[in-house]
Design a protein around this nucleic acid. Structure first.
Lengths: 244, 244
DNA sequence: CGCAAGATTGAAGTACGTCAATTCCAGTGG
DNA sequence: CCACTGGAATTGACGTACTTCAATCTTGCG
């Protein structure tokens, strides 16, 4: 089903959903829209009328600074909801843009409200996912503030591998990374040039391999060790264990 | 009342609470505990049984890194709740420590659950406050990743002034800042030495003045301009965004 | 007064950024 | 099939905003 990654993700928090619950989510989708890379899915100041569920591709939360630099504050991958709870805030304080080609499902606000009013379990699961988003944001803060470039990038790769696994996008130790080095830099607070040199170092140290847009982590345990990566903040049930 | 700062804060989001609603919150407090500076209020790995409401002093969310550096990821000031929704996550992925002497109210988990089950408005207000926390965390990420030391610190000071105002801790353009320069550095990803030089620069530029532990912002408009500070992310009704 | 924590200062090192040139590569059209 | 093209990756030279270390001065406070 189209909502599989979302369900997959939420099932990390709660017990397996029943078929009828799955259908409930699935049927809430009112529309599906494609976005090209660099296109905004939601813009700062918007007050979206429906919730956006990412089905395919990568998107990013970002802000622009006065000198024109872009800071990406979060990655969204399939199964991630862009704005479950904007209704509580008045408007978006940042934008969400497609990083690769994206397929996005629209779920009307009312459908979400109805779903969560009737299903405490689902409501909790959605809130759980935003609490995890918050935990991720805090960890990125630590990463950017305190870790050196090579560990910064390694830490990010560990996270994205685990998150990809959690939604069924990775079974081995590799995943699609549809980003330019510039975009990676905009995420970790590094220049494109330095990101390039950092990736070269990680490759020559044998920690990663890249095949086109696919990133291969040669030895996850070693990379996690190197990056001081503790998966606890992801609050995955199997945290620490390797799924697959 | 003891819960005044919290109520003050929540009233930014929702309409004024009735006296009975205020009493409801007030009466939920089961206990009040004092903490000395540097003492942990909640430690990583904990699964707290009650919600902590900060009444006096400043506390901080932090993580420790392998080399022993501490990264402070958020400040908590009076009116802030430390862990409203930990129940949804299995355990704390970080610690919360007192930065100054703190007075903390304990509210039993069950009291919160009951309160929010019965009062949708209050429940929404509490969730609103965690969404704002998330927005703040994202803004700090931008600050640390992209802004230079002087703007970084200025941005932080703008935020803390507005947050202090929002809970009635500041009426003019000054507020209590009970932190060492080292702690400010641990927050903004700077060494204590560089934090010192940065503060000197801000003082000599006439942007701030410090009188002991009290920070005076000489010209808020100028400091906001300098720091590229847009208060929208705080989602305060009064501080910018008009309700839509 | 006397002590310890914090603030301040200077000197030297480094991890990053910036700029600019060059190479690589996937698409596209001929 | 190849030549063309524009974006992305790579490289080198150089500048700088920060860190680190270590000494000294200041302040709060019993």
């Amino acid at each position: 089903m189209r909502a599989d990654p979302l369900i997959c993700k939420l099932e990390q928090f709660t017990k397996k959903f029943s078929d009828s619950e799955k259908r409930l989510i699935e049927d809430a989708i009112s529309d599906i829209v494609d976005y090209a890379p660099r296109q905004d899915i939601i813009s700062q100041g918007d007050r979206p009328e429906h919730v956006h569920l990412l089905l395919e591709g990568w998107a990013g939360r970002y802000k622009l600074l006065p000198e024109g630099e872009r800071q990406i504050m979060a990655y969204l991958i399939p199964g991630d909801l862009c704005d479950v709870h904007v209704a509580l805030l008045r408007q978006m304080d940042h934008s969400i843009g497609a990083l690769s080609a994206c397929k996005v499902a629209f779920i009307p606000d009312k459908a979400i409200t109805k779903m969560t009013d009737d299903h405490g379990r689902l409501s909790k699961a959605l809130w759980w996912s935003t609490l995890v988003d918050e935990a991720i944001s805090r960890e990125w803060l630590v990463t950017v503030a305190r870790r050196q470039a090579d560990k910064r990038v390694s830490h990010l790769f560990c996270e994205m591998l685990l998150r990809s696994k959690a939604v069924g996008l990775s079974t081995d130790n590799s995943f699609e990374l549809p980003l330019t080095q510039e975009e990676l830099g905009d995420t970790m607070g590094l220049s494109g040039v330095h990101m390039n040199r950092t990736l070269q170092k990680l490759r020559s140290d044998g920690l990663i391999t890249s095949q086109g847009k696919r990133l291969v982590i040669n030895d996850l345990a070693r990379l996690m060790e190197f990056a001081d990566f503790d998966p606890m903040y992801l609050h995955q049930i199997s945290a620490g264990a390797k799924s697959g």
